[in-house]
Design a protein around this nucleic acid. Structure first.
Lengths: 125, 125
DNA sequence: AGATAATACTTAACATGTGTAGCAAAAATT
DNA sequence: AATTTTTGCTACACATGTTAAGTATTATCT
C-alpha cells in the first residue's frame, strides 16, 4: 500500500481528502474553484470531498454575500489538529522517497511531469 | 479530455479496456494474473474489465483443464477488428506526445517513472 | 429592462482504484 | 490421507476520475 495511504488510514482520511485539507489550511479562506486548481481535482470530485470533510467537521463553509454562487471554505480547529498529527510523518515519507531515488532524479522527474502537464492539456497547437 | 480517451470513445472503450485488449491481442492465450501484471491493473479491476469485454464478445475465456482455478483469455475476431480500427490513431497520439515533449525528455521521463516504480513498491529496505 | 450567456458549483451515472473477504482448487505439510 | 496453506480469481464496499446535465446567480448584450 502507498505509504502515505497507510499513514492516513489511521486518521480515516484518503490521500485526496488530505490534499484538500492541506490546501485549505495553507490558503486560509478559499473557494472551491481555487481549491480544485491547487489540489489538481475536478470540481465534481472536490464537491464530494468537501461534503465529507464538512460532515466530519474538519472544514466549514460560509456563503459569499457578494456573489451568492460562491462559498468560502476554511479549516476548523479539528482540521488543524489532524494536520498537526500527520504532517510530520507525511513530509518524512516524501523525504524518504526523494532520498531513495536521489534528489536530482526526483527533481528531474517533477520537472518532466510539469512539462508533460503543460504540453498536453491544451492540444491547441 | 485525454486524446486517447477521445479516440476510444467512438469505439465505446475506456483506456483500461483498450490496454487489456491490446495485452490480450499481443500475448495470445494468457491468464488474468499475467494480464494484470502487463496492464498494471489489480485483479479486482481486471475481473470487471474482462467481464465487460467478454459480454461484448471482444474476448473469450476458456477453462484451464490442468489447473481449474485458471482461465485462458484470448481475443476474438471482433476484438481484433477494434484493434485494427484504432491502433494507428492510438500510436499516432503517443508519437505526437513524444514529439511535442522531445524524444529525449520523453524517454527520460519513462526511465524515471520506472525507477520510481522499482524503488517504491517494496518498502523493505 | 429583458433575453442570453457565462460562472460556480452540484448531481448523476458509470468506470476504475483499492482494501478486504470469500471461494474453489491445487500445493504443501504433517 | 487429512489438514493447512497458498494460489487464482471473484464479490463487495467505498472513494475518486470523468463526462454530461442541472441549478442558481451574475454578467453581458441588445
Amino acid at each position: 500500500m502507498g505509504p502515505i495511504r497507510a499513514l492516513l488510514s489511521d486518521a480515516e482520511l484518503t490521500e485526496q481528502q488530505w490534499r484538500v485539507l492541506r490546501v485549505v489550511q495553507e490558503s486560509g479562506d478559499i473557494d472551491p474553484t481555487q481549491i480544485s486548481e491547487r489540489a489538481c481535482l475536478l470540481l465534481p470530485s472536490l464537491t464530494r470531498i468537501l461534503q465529507k470533510l464538512d460532515d466530519r467537521g474538519l472544514i466549514e463553509r460560509q456563503k459569499d454575500l457578494e456573489d451568492r454562487r460562491r462559498q468560502i471554505i476554511r479549516i476548523t480547529p479539528a482540521g488543524e489538529q489532524i494536520i498537526d498529527d500527520n504532517l510530520g510523518a507525511s513530509l518524512a515519507v516524501i523525504a524518504q522517497t526523494r532520498a531513495k531515488m536521489g534528489a536530482e532524479k526526483y527533481e528531474a522527474l517533477l520537472d518532466l511531469l510539469n512539462e508533460l502537464n503543460r504540453s498536453e492539456p491544451s492540444k491547441a497547437d
